[in-house]
Design a protein around this nucleic acid. Sequence first.
DNA 1: CCAATGTATCTCAGTGCTAAGGAATCTGAA
DNA 2: TTCAGATTCCTTAGCACTGAGATACATTGG
Lengths: 168, 168
Amino acid sequence: MAEREDHVDRVVRQWGAERPDLDVSPMEVIGRLKRLSRLVDAELKETFARHDLDFASFDVLATLRRSGPPYRLTPTGLMRSAMVTSGAISQRLDRLEARGLVTRTPSGSDGRSRDVALTEEGYALMDRALPDHLATERRVLAGLDEARTAAFIDALRVVLGTLGDDVE
Amino acid sequence: MAEREDHVDRVVRQWGAERPDLDVSPMEVIGRLKRLSRLVDAELKETFARHDLDFASFDVLATLRRSGPPYRLTPTGLMRSAMVTSGAISQRLDRLEARGLVTRTPSGSDGRSRDVALTEEGYALMDRALPDHLATERRVLAGLDEARTAAFIDALRVVLGTLGDDVE
DNA sequence: CCAATGTATCTCAGTGCTAAGGAATCTGAA
DNA sequence: TTCAGATTCCTTAGCACTGAGATACATTGG
């Protein structure tokens, strides 16, 4: 097991001294989860910046790319995948459209809806950025052996299930 | 193991079809990590709102509270704990000071610095909010048995170590 | 003691998000 | 058919953060 004290160890120790009546053990998980998420964001951000991207833009382009031909989704579909509000998606698409990475056209079948499609430029950009992004993710996780990785995924899946992240 | 497909399962399946040449397995961890972090944030947010708090305010007040008597830290100390910029801390403290939950006084020993102290009101608010917050965290993690919890913490600790989250 | 460098805090413009609400369109029950 | 309610997308105000830079003070080396 790890030898050094990390930030959350100290937090838990401090609470133990100040509020010994409370069981703060849930922080061992949630505190680290939030802290790690922030640190990972910072790592990924650098990779995205090398491709003139940020997380929001990458997320939209990647969602379109992996949806397969014809690389076309609605703003609502993108909204659900990204876990942001409809307003956020509208603004993301404004930025991507201005850069020529996606197009927005009226939907044929539903007058309320729009088709958001990846342009060739957007497709090419994802081809360049994705391997770099994956390399960064691999580097972040390099300390995990196979068993720990499996256990990590299992635990994440359980809690995601608790919070209702199942598809369908 | 879990039976149902979650969001990340689908993402990985899509990439497998579109880019079978790439190994997207790191997404199994990082995708779930980011997604869970967002969902947990939404849960915690509701609890904070019941006490007229948000995550940023709770974070500052909790850091002061667990530091022990005299519940006094510098903006720099709060900045490091919160992983935000100095500007963000200045603004957080503006808001908390306006609500009478903390005070800012010049530091005695260092003319550049300030002492940020919890007021009685701030202290009392934390006493009310903390048990409620812990209950929410426990509810979120209720699906994890003891072994999975330990494995989860272990994996988080390893990756945090990779990213340099040790204290000292 | 001085000058140079480092540190602590704050200010402010810019950014991307949420929450609320509006307009257009679709759906289904009467 | 009709129309009330649901859905889709967008707009906008407000918010909290970042990044850059200013100011004031501390520290260090000569």
